[in-house]
Amino acid sequence: MTTTMDLLASLIATAQVRLDVDASSKKRVLEKVAEAFAEQGCDAGKLFSALIERERLGSTGLGEGIAIPHARVPGLTEPRIAILRLAQPVDFDAVDNQPVTIVVALLVPEQATETHLEILSELAERLSRPEVREAILSAETPEALRAAFRA
């Protein structure tokens, strides 16, 4: 598990972070997620489709204002994370029907491994702690937001 923790720490350290993103719908949130990843050289159009298709099978809205949209991306060699804090909460079909403010998106290579699942559940675990969510919501800089995950 320590390797997963290390991997997650480095993923968060290099994550794209966007504060107070303006988005009026789930669709636009996923567009912004795809745009954030596009800056790291991903094809925004393909990513958007992959995220939309995954959501179609079931929402990644975890409840408590958190969503962790994720997808497998052909051609990707290692996982990537982007973190968006939304300016206004957005309806995300979440399990608790509550709108979402914190979006942590995860891309993984096409080949499935146990590590990917571990990253996903570790992210969910950290975001389930109220103090982590508090720290993310009150972070004033991308650096402060990244630090919230280390709490």
């Binding site: 079931g58 929402s59 962790i68 499935a112 559940s121």
Partner: peptide
């Protein structure tokens, strides 16, 4: 039939 959160 919706998949849970952990589905990739």
């Amino acid at each position: 039939f919706a998949v849970g959160f952990g589905f990739f």
